[in-house]
Write a protein that binds this DNA or RNA. Structure first.
Lengths: 304, 304
DNA sequence: GCCTTGCGATCACCCCAAGCTATCGCGATA
DNA sequence: TATCGCGATAGCTTGGGGTGATCGCAAGGC
């Protein structure tokens, strides 16, 4: 069997993506005749016409549209091979597009970045902050390589790597009935007026689930857009809230007017972890990244 | 990003499969220096050493073994592309490796073959008879392209295409208490001594399931190895059996000493269908084959 | 212990295929 | 009708993948 050239497949997809032979040729850094002849040869080895050229118009033929996905798949598989090979040679070098949820990013990244740079100086961490559903979609679309978020995530063909638990603590304003408690129990939340983040933040749902609370306990019309706002709202005495421990550690006492009260064991917690595409060529690197994250944050998690 | 050549990947896998540069070169119809230099270039573009050459021995390096599956995948994807392209040009031409179970093959193939040849003269049907579990394994291993058998089949990444139902009929020797009946009901089987095929034939399990009978009703020490034997055993008066209708149609009355009795509606039946790999590049052809099979056999199934 | 054998690497040379420039034919548009 | 921009074609150039000959080396036979 006569195989086509990967370059021919690049030209093929290039024409589809750019709409014309000339544009594709320019994008591929070759002249239009070179591209034309390669397409002709590709059509010859495939035995089908890929484009219908009637006059000046170029349209994908039926066969072409059928074959396009496989052409893309072949190219993707080949680039994955190269990516994995480079990762073998020098792991965690070059760009790595990491998606992080907003309720994790400000607390983990400041500590991660310098350590990552120390250990893997060639690594270029391209950070992207977004809510879980956006990150998952972008991971699926190959716009991101790796996600750091709260498990579990629903995505076919994705692999999760659990890192550590991040317990919730109760934040109440001074003078609140619970303000003097050393610890609280989930049952103490019954009937409490709670402030939570706006829809879309997974912290909301995880807090609901982990602490067995009802949506009805939320104070209506007060949904914070960020955890910072949330803290200020608690400080102003509007109500209590649940904060992830990573947001308050190293900062306890720095929120005037707020008491942070841990839960009794077993502490309700969210599970922080990494998620990547199951077919990703950089899995091994991601495990190294997991180790790095554990080294950076596990000690803190211990010292609660 | 610099992509490797598909040819380079072929050389790579060739060395692994044949154990040495020379053997691979021979298998690839090139000289050994050509192959050596291509491997060197491949190692250069990948940035890793694929083989450890200490002296005369060649062993896959760690990186090589990691990359090998992706190299194979890339090649497979490319060949699938070509296969699908050729199928677009002229469907159902060339070799098609079809696996059929023994309780279907003798009854469907004699009618299928001439019609297939008439409609698709370029098609070369390579028939392989085997039991379901063997066929499924060979389908998964790319040794077969398409299976014709009784559904349902358990295989990840497989697609099923239902064709038609094949009702069971009761076969009893003359003089049997049920021999004069026009029809029978499943309940008539209670307490009946039944002969069945030996283990491994899916017909056994499907007969059990469709007719709600118990394994205990089997006559021990009499398990036929083929349906032919089974019929002869029934004729000699040992007991009754369940036969698929396709095995008896056009032949009723040709088994001396045996009465074939259909079941009342709803007739117990097995479901005949096609199965292929979900990723197969020839899905469209398989749908054509399904149409062909329906044209060939549906009339018979009707004329019960 | 020496010679043969067979491996992969290297060298020098060849040649085709993929690239280039220039040009053609042809619809669409003004 | 003149012009523009498209893809196809032609002829030339060149680099990369091919060949055959050879080298160095380790294993194995006599």
């Amino acid at each position: 069997m006569h195989l086509p050239t990967l370059r021919q497949l690049e030209y093929f997809t290039g024409i589809v993506d750019h709409g014309s032979f000339r544009a594709a040729a320019e994008a591929c850094f070759v002249t239009q005749p070179a591209l034309s002849s390669q397409i002709q040869q590709l059509e010859k080895t495939l035995g089908v016409r890929l484009f219908e050229r009637d006059g000046r118009k170029v349209r994908l033929s039926l066969a072409g549209s059928r074959l396009l996905p496989r052409a893309r798949l072949t190219l993707e598989t080949a680039t994955d091979l190269v990516t994995e090979a480079h990762a073998q040679g020098e792991p965690l070098a070059g760009p790595l597009r990491l998606g992080v949820i907003p309720t994790v990013a400000p607390y983990l990244l400041p500590a991660l970045a310098p350590e990552a740079h120390r250990r893997y100086p060639e690594l270029r961490l391209l950070l992207h902050e977004g809510q879980t559903h956006d990150l998952v979609e972008q991971l699926h679309d190959h716009q991101l390589d790796l996600l750091l978020l709260a498990l579990d995530v629903e995505l076919d063909g994705a692999e999760e790597h659990f890192l550590f638990e991040d317990p919730f603590v109760l934040a109440v304003p001074q003078g609140h009935p619970l303000a003097k408690r050393k610890t609280v129990h989930r049952s103490d939340l019954d009937g409490l007026d709670l402030l939570l983040l706006e829809d879309g933040h997974c912290l909301r749902e995880h807090a609901f689930a982990a602490c067995s609370i009802e949506p009805s306990q939320e104070i209506d019309d007060f949904r914070a857009t960020s955890m910072n706002t949330l803290v200020h709202m608690v400080a102003s005495g509007i109500g209590a809230t649940l904060l992830p421990q990573m947001a308050v550690q190293n900062q306890r006492g720095e929120f005037p007017g707020i008491m942070m009260i841990p839960f009794e064991e077993p502490q309700p917690a969210r599970r922080i972890g990494l998620v990547w595409r199951q077919s990703s060529p950089r899995k091994e690197e991601f495990h190294l990244m997991a180790e790095l994250l554990m080294r950076v944050f596990q000690p803190h998690a211990m010292a609660s």
